[in-house]
Structure formats: structure tokens, C-alpha cells
């Protein structure tokens, strides 16, 4: 920004930091925001570890889904409280880039699983009545 801002940057700020959007173009957080994020992420980390290490759930599949759900919530918490993401930071371009990336990530990961699961499924020896010796050659 302008040099006027440059000079104020050098001296300790007197004004409050609750306004969210800084002069540097980046939205910087408050102590309260960081603490909320930290406490939430401790809770959201501790519960999945407890579920898995304590063997809380009888069904492993259910446990996996729950653990994954906790991870997704924790990612959102980190993005909001640590990366200070909101729809207006950097004029909305941050959010747009992140949504675009999330779509690409989803396509990459879900697409890979989908394709490879079906390929493994189709290549299972018994599906095509292969002989035992053929099945042996399969990786």
C-alpha cells in the first residue's frame, strides 16, 4: 500500500485488532479466534483418536466414516480460524481458488477410487472363470 501505511507499521499499533481485515490486505485473526480454533481442533483431533484407539465402535466401517467426518469438520475449522478465510478476503479470489481446488481434489481422489475399484473388481479371477494357474500370474 502507500508509504503512510508503511510508517504506521513500524510503530506499535494502538487501535484494536478486532476489525478482522488488516491494512496488509490479509485478514489477520484475533487471539480469541486463534484460541477458538485451537480448542476446537484439539477436540476434533482427540475424539477420532479415542474412537480408534479405544475401539469405541463395533463396526470398523462406521468408525471410518465418523473419523473422516471429524477430519472434514476440522479442516473447515482450520481454514476459518487459522487461515482466516472468508468470502471477502483478497476480494473473494482466495475463496474462488480454494473452491476450484477442492473440486479438482474431489475429482482426483474420488475418480481414482472409482476407476481403480472397478478395475480391481473386473480383474478378479473368479469373475472370468480363469484357471488357477492364470490367477497365479495376477499381481
Amino acid at each position: 500500500m502507500s508509504t503512510a501505511h508503511h510508517e504506521t507499521e513500524l510503530e506499535p499499533h494502538v487501535h484494536s485488532h478486532d476489525h478482522g481485515h488488516g491494512h496488509g490486505g490479509e485478514a489477520h485473526g484475533s487471539l480469541k479466534g486463534y484460541m477458538i480454533g485451537f480448542v476446537l481442533s484439539i477436540i476434533l483431533t482427540a475424539i477420532p483418536f479415542w474412537i480408534v484407539m479405544g475401539g469405541v465402535m463395533t463396526s470398523n466401517q462406521t468408525a471410518a466414516v465418523v473419523v473422516l467426518a471429524f477430519a472434514l469438520v476440522q479442516i473447515v475449522v482450520h481454514v476459518i480460524y487459522f487461515l482466516h478465510m472468508n468470502s471477502s478476503s483478497e476480494g473473494g479470489w482466495n475463496m474462488l481458488a480454494m473452491i476450484f481446488t477442492a473440486v479438482l481434489v474431489l475429482i482426483t481422489i474420488v475418480g481414482s477410487f472409482w476407476v481403480m475399484y472397478h478395475m480391481n473388481h473386473l480383474m478378479m479371477p473368479q469373475m472370468h472363470e480363469m484357471s488357477a494357474s492364470d490367477a497365479h500370474d495376477m499381481p
Binding site: 471477502s88 483478497e90 476480494g91 482466495n94 481446488t101 481434489v105 482426483t108 481422489i109
Partner: peptide, 28 residues
């Protein structure tokens, strides 16, 4: 609201591309 030299936005875009690297490794 405007960005300061776009440095932070540019760095954010780098992080998003880094995210894609991890996405590929997670998929693998």
C-alpha cells in the same frame, strides 16, 4: 478491498497447487 502487490494471493495460489500434489499422493 484490494490486495497488497498480490503477494498473499499469489502465495495462496501456490498453496492450492501444492494441495493438488497432495491430492494425487493421497489418491495413489
Amino acid at each position: 478491498h484490494h490486495t497488497e502487490n498480490g503477494t498473499l494471493l499469489g502465495f495462496w495460489l501456490y498453496l492450492m497447487s501444492d494441495c493438488l500434489i497432495f491430492a494425487v499422493l493421497f489418491a495413489t
